[in-house]
Every structure is written in C-alpha cells, then in structure tokens.
C-alpha cells in the first residue's frame, strides 16, 4: 500500500450505523435530563430555583422509566444487526484484552473495534442502567418493599449515580480529546488510517482484501 497515490479516495469504514447513532444521542439526552434533575433531588436546597420539586421529580421519574427503551428497541429489532454485533464484541474478550485492562493499557495490543476500556465502560453503562432502573422502581413504589430494601435501594441508587457522573464526565473528556472517534458518532465513519491505528483487528476484518 505504500505506493498509494495521494489523489486516491480515502477509504472510510462504517463504525456506527444510523440506528446506533440515534440511540447514542437519544440516550445522551436522557442521561443529561436524569443527571440534571437528579442533582436537585439529592441536594434539596436547590429546590425552587427553576421548577418546583414535584415537576423535577416527574421529569426524573419519566425519563428514568423510559431510559432503557431506546437501547432495547435498537437491540431487538431487525434493524439492530450492528447493535447486536457490537454487544457481542463487548461480551467476548481475548486474554490479551483482559491483560491490557489489568495493566491499565501498559501492554500494547492490537485493538478490536473497541478497546477493553471502552468495552468495560459500555458494560458498566448497560448494567448501571438496569441497576438504576430497579432501585429507582423500589424508591418510587416503595410500599411493596421492606424498609431495609428501600434503604439499600437509596444507598445503591446514590452510589451508582455518583459513579455515572464520573463515567459520563470521563466519556465526554475522552470524546473531546479524540476528535475522529467523536465525529464518527455524528457521521458514522472513520478513515481506514484511523481504524488501522486504533482498531487494528476490526480494520483487518473489514478490509480482508489487503
């Protein structure tokens, strides 16, 4: 490939299809709303600044109820081929990927479509949504649960909320500092060059003819 001439069209690979991009941004919006409304619900003294408490509570409740929906719909429909493929990528790891995560990336490996850190992040977000949903359910419909569960659900909901704030902040910082990766969540594509560098294994799958 060293003889490739400068005018050759840049090969671009589809990293995220339209379904994935749509789900990502609707999810981002819902997370934003949940985090924004969650802060005053936790720190009571913010109340009355913008909206009365019950309005904030309703917004938080309804966004929370529906937050798993876009992901589920995208995964389960006939349109979810790529979502399912990427879920599979996050589920199955090689030994070297695990070692990379354990050594905090000190060991160099050829990355899959997502690096182990990204995979772990996705898994945390997925499990976290289920945990937040379930504990939120207990908090809202507390009458059906013993008081020790309600207490436990409160502690767990708070703890994972705290973790989500850190995770989301980290995600945004990483996105802003990795421009090509972030742009691919807008237009879906990355250059071959980017893929060779950041997702070698995946690039080799996608470009077998080389």
């Amino acid at each position: 490939m060293s003889t490739r001439i400068a005018t050759a069209p840049v090969v671009r690979l589809l990293r995220f299809d339209a379904v994935q991009r749509f789900v990502h941004w609707i999810n981002a919006l819902m997370f934003g709303v949940l985090m924004f409304t969650g802060i005053p619900l936790y720190f009571g003294s913010f109340f009355g600044v913008l909206f009365p408490r019950h309005v904030i509570q309703e917004i938080h409740l309804w966004s929370g109820i529906f937050v798993p929906l876009p992901i589920l719909v995208s995964l389960l429909g006939p349109w979810g081929h790529r979502m399912r493929q990427d879920l599979h990528r996050c589920s199955y790891w090689t030994r070297s990927e695990l070692r990379w995560l354990r050594t905090f990336g000190r060991e160099r490996i050829n990355f899959d479509k997502f690096n182990p850190g990204q995979k772990a992040n996705a898994l945390f977000v997925g499990a976290g949504i289920i945990i937040m949903w379930a504990t939120g359910y207990i908090l809202q419909w507390f009458r059906f649960f013993p008081v020790s569960w309600r207490e436990g659900a409160t502690v767990t909901h708070d703890f994972f909320a705290f973790a989500f704030f850190i995770i989301v902040a980290g995600h945004v910082v990483m996105a802003l500092s990795h421009r090509d990766a972030m742009v691919s969540m807008l237009n879906g594509k990355v250059s071959e060059e980017w893929a060779e560098k950041n997702a070698r294994e995946w690039a080799d799958e996608e470009l077998p003819a080389k």
Binding site: A127, I130, I131, A134, T135, I138, S148, W149, E151, G152, A153, T154, V155, T156, F159, F160
Partner: peptide, 10 residues
C-alpha cells in the same frame, strides 16, 4: 453488586 447493594446497603 447492585442486588447486594439493595439487600445489604442499609
């Protein structure tokens, strides 16, 4: 971990 949090968080 989440389930344990509900059960033993208190």
């Amino acid at each position: 971990l989440g389930a344990a949090g509900v059960a033993f968080g208190a």
